[in-house]
Design a binder for these strands. Structure first.
Lengths: 119, 119
DNA sequence: AAGATCTATCGACTATCGTCGATTATCGAT
DNA sequence: ATCGATAATCGACGATAGTCGATAGATCTT
């Protein structure tokens, strides 16, 4: 056998892939970095006004970012308030470390504290 | 105006997007993590035997990873030796930090030392 | 209730992606 | 020169993605 060192488990690789896929678009990166710099929520309209793309497109991107929990949503009146998921601020760079082979301690990489699902 | 905090420059966002796009696939993540754990080069055949996909597919993925300099190539005989780009091991998690809003010092995030292009 | 505002969804279009099988190219050995 | 082994490229296919305009849904105001 030649595989004395094996790659990541397929399941783990697929989870990380879903994270990277969510950021595999310049517009979504701008949205995430914007929400991360502002620690406070932003409405869709505010994001639209700085994103350079249409409202439906921004809504679509926000949905993708929310599906992987990079951002969290909260409705307030007619607006939807989007904010960064603080848990991902720390867990995502750790995922990048793991992919790049850095041995990561047994600490929970992403416990998603403060995350709630609205099923 | 409402945009007192602006997102990343479009150019920077697009560069990061190209990096994340290169890892937006579970197979490529497995290849990168494999090469990162082994610090030594691997041939395409070795990677094929642990990747679960065909040879042409692996070659295609390696090309994508090489285009963004995550991996480096060197021909030896009939084989191609692929190895991780050590520069990206440190610069890529830093990019993840930047996207997540962490203020990064003025150090060069990715100087790609040890990288040479074969144009 | 009616209107106004904000956001989500739908349908469509084009472009790109991941995978495969088959072929071609490169290199070493006979 | 020929053969064998390895890797890269080609062509094709279905699937997915990014964008837009238009429409529908939700919520406040009057």
């Amino acid at each position: 056998m030649n595989a004395e060192v094996k790659p990541l488990d397929r399941a783990e690789a697929e989870e990380y892939a879903s994270w990277f896929k969510a950021l595999a678009d310049a517009t979504r990166i701008q949205i995430v970095s914007l929400l991360a710099r502002r620690r406070e929520p932003m409405t869709v309209g505010e994001i639209v006004s700085v994103s350079g793309v249409g409202q439906s497109t921004v809504s679509h991107h926000l949905k993708i970012l929310a599906e992987v929990r990079f951002v969290l949503v909260e409705r307030q009146g007619t607006s939807s308030l989007y904010r960064i998921n603080e848990a991902c601020v720390s867990c995502f760079p750790t995922a990048a470390d793991v992919v790049m082979g850095k041995p990561v301690p047994a600490s929970p990489a992403c416990d998603r504290t403060g995350d709630r699902d609205g099923t």
